[in-house]
Design a protein around this nucleic acid. Structure first.
Length: 426
DNA sequence: TCTGGGGTCCTAGGACCC
DNA sequence: TCTGGGGTCCTAGGACCC
C-alpha cells in the first residue's frame, strides 16, 4: 500500500501561517514576475479565480472581492516543505518517504498491517498539522496512481472524509474510479484526455478496463501499460531512491521587462549559471554540458503579438566541473552567438547536463582540475548567500544594475529563514 | 540495378508531472 | 502592457557499425 500526503493550497497555507487574519479569506500566490496565479485557496476558487491563469485576466475578480495577493516566496515555502517532510520521516522512516514535489510525498506502507492503515493515515494528517500548521489531505491505496485518486476525493469532500481516504477493497476502488473524470487521473494530460473522451472513455473505471495492448499502442507505449496496471491495483511505479541525483539542472526566468541589449542578456545568463552551479554543488555533482537558450518575441519595430520563439546552443566542457566561473566562461560565447540585434527578448535560461558525482570527475590531461581552495571558495559563497540574503556575494558578470530582473512586488517576509525578517509577536 | 540483418548511440520532440 | 520554472520518461528516426 502507498500513501500520498498532499498539502492543501500549499503556498497559500504558508502565507496564512503568518497572517491569521486571512484565515477563511480568499488568498492567491503569483508566479515569478507576478505573471500567473499558481496557488489559490478554496475561497478564491469559489470566486472563480482560474488556476495557472494570467494575473491580469483575474484582476477584476481579485480587486472586487479583496482577495489577498502574494508574490511567490520560495524561501518560506522551501523551509515549510522541509518541516512537513521531516514529520513524515519521523512517523515512518527516512527510507519510506519519497518527496515527490514541494508540497507532496509518497509513503511506502509495506511494513504496516492492513487494519492499522486508516489510523495511520489520520496520524499523518493530525501530526503534520499540529507540528507545522499546514493542512494536508491523505490518500491510501494499493498503487501510486490509485493513491492519487484517493487523495483527490479526500480533498474534494474535506468535511465528509475529514481529509483522509483509504481505498482497500475492490468495491471501494471501483466506486472511486467511477467518480473520477478521465482528465483527473494522474498520467492523463490534455492530449490523452481528449483522445479518451472521443472514444467514450470518460472516467477512471472505464480506462481501467481497457486492454494492456491497446494502451501500449495508444497511450505512449510502456507508460500507458503501466497506467492500466496501476489502475487495477498492481503497483508498477516504484518508490524513488532519495539519494538519486538529477540528470539535468536548469535555471530559467522570464525577464521583468523586455530586453534588447546583449549586455543585459549576458548578465542574466551569468546569474542563472551561478544559480545552477549552486544547485549542482548542493547535490555534490559536477557537469560537463551546457545549453543556453533565449526566447525572442518579434522585433523592436513590430507591434506586440505574443508568439515566442526559442533558440538555443550547447557546448561540451573539456571536463566536468561545478565551478561557477567555468560555466560563465563557456556560457558567455553562446549568448553572443545567439544574440541578434533588433530582436526583443522575453526569457533566457541555462541547462547543465552530463552530470556526474563530484568524486568521479574525470580530469582532462590538459585541463587543470579545480584546486581545493576553489571548492572552499565556492562553499563559502554558498553559505553566505544562503544565510544572509541571496546574491550578497555575486560575480561581476551578473551585473549590478539588473534592469532585467523579475518583478516581485508583493512578496511576504522570509519569516523562517532570515533573522531580520522574523515576525513580531504582539 | 540491386542491395541483409542485426546492433548502438544520439537528437529532437511529444507527453506528462508539480 | 500583460502568459512560471522547473523536471521526467519514452519514442522515432538518422547515422554509423559489423
Amino acid at each position: 500500500m502507498f500513501a500520498i500526503v498532499d498539502c492543501n493550497s500549499f503556498y497559500c497555507s504558508c502565507e496564512r501561517l503568518f497572517r491569521p487574519d486571512l484565515w477563511n479569506k480568499p488568498v492567491v500566490v503569483l508566479s515569478n514576475n507576478d505573471g500567473c496565479i499558481i496557488a489559490r485557496t478554496d475561497e478564491a476558487k469559489q470566486l472563480g479565480v482560474g488556476m495557472a491563469a494570467p494575473y491580469y485576466q483575474n484582476r477584476g475578480i481579485i480587486e472586487q472581492h479583496k482577495v489577498a495577493v502574494f508574490s511567490s516566496n520560495y524561501h518560506l515555502y522551501g523551509d515549510m516543505s522541509k518541516r512537513v517532510m521531516e514529520t513524515l520521516r519521523f512517523l515512518t522512516s527516512t527510507k519510506q518517504v519519497e518527496v515527490y514535489s514541494v508540497d507532496e510525498a509518497f509513503v511506502n506502507l509495506a511494513q504496516f498491517q492492513p487494519d492499522q492503515l486508516t489510523q495511520l493515515a489520520f496520524q499523518f494528517k493530525d501530526t503534520v498539522e499540529l507540528w507545522t500548521g499546514i493542512k494536508v489531505s491523505v490518500g491510501l491505496a494499493p498503487s501510486k496512481v490509485l493513491s492519487k485518486v484517493a487523495n483527490r476525493l479526500a480533498k474534494k469532500d474535506k468535511k465528509g472524509s475529514r481529509g483522509v481516504m483509504v481505498l482497500q477493497t475492490g468495491e471501494q476502488i471501483k466506486e472511486a474510479l467511477e467518480r473520477t473524470p478521465i482528465e483527473d487521473i494522474w498520467g492523463v494530460g490534455r492530449q490523452y484526455a481528449l483522445k479518451l473522451r472521443n472514444l467514450g472513455i470518460d472516467n477512471g473505471l472505464r480506462l481501467s478496463t481497457m486492454p494492456i495492448e491497446w494502451a501500449r499502442k495508444n497511450l505512449g507505449g510502456v507508460v500507458g501499460t503501466r497506467l492500466i496496471r496501476e489502475l487495477n491495483g498492481e503497483p508498477c511505479i516504484p518508490m524513488k531512491d532519495p539519494l538519486e541525483t538529477k540528470k539535468m539542472i536548469a535555471t530559467t526566468r522570464m525577464f521583468g521587462t523586455t530586453v534588447t541589449e546583449l549586455k543585459d542578456l549576458k548578465e542574466a545568463v551569468a546569474t542563472y549559471a551561478s544559480r545552477a552551479a549552486e544547485k549542482l554543488r548542493r547535490q555534490y555533482c559536477a557537469a560537463s554540458y551546457i545549453d543556453v537558450f533565449l526566447v525572442t518575441n518579434g522585433t523592436v519595430n513590430e507591434k506586440y503579438v505574443y508568439s515566442p520563439q526559442t533558440r538555443h546552443l550547447s557546448t561540451n566542457l573539456p571536463h566536468a566541473t561545478n565551478n561557477t566561473d567555468d560555466f560563465i566562461k563557456y556560457a558567455m560565447p553562446l549568448v553572443e552567438q545567439l544574440y541578434e540585434r533588433g530582436l526583443k527578448y522575453l526569457k533566457a535560461g541555462i541547462t547543465l547536463g552530463e552530470i556526474v558525482p563530484e568524486s568521479a570527475i574525470q580530469t582532462n590531461l590538459f585541463a587543470s582540475t579545480m584546486p581545493e581552495s576553489k571548492r572552499a571558495l565556492m562553499d563559502a559563497i554558498d553559505n553566505i548567500n544562503f544565510s544572509q540574503r541571496n546574491d550578497a556575494i555575486k560575480y561581476a558578470a551578473s551585473g549590478l544594475t539588473r534592469n532585467w530582473k523579475m518583478r516581485q512586488e508583493m512578496r511576504s517576509g522570509r519569516f523562517t529563514t532570515r533573522w531580520e525578517e522574523l515576525p513580531d509577536a504582539h
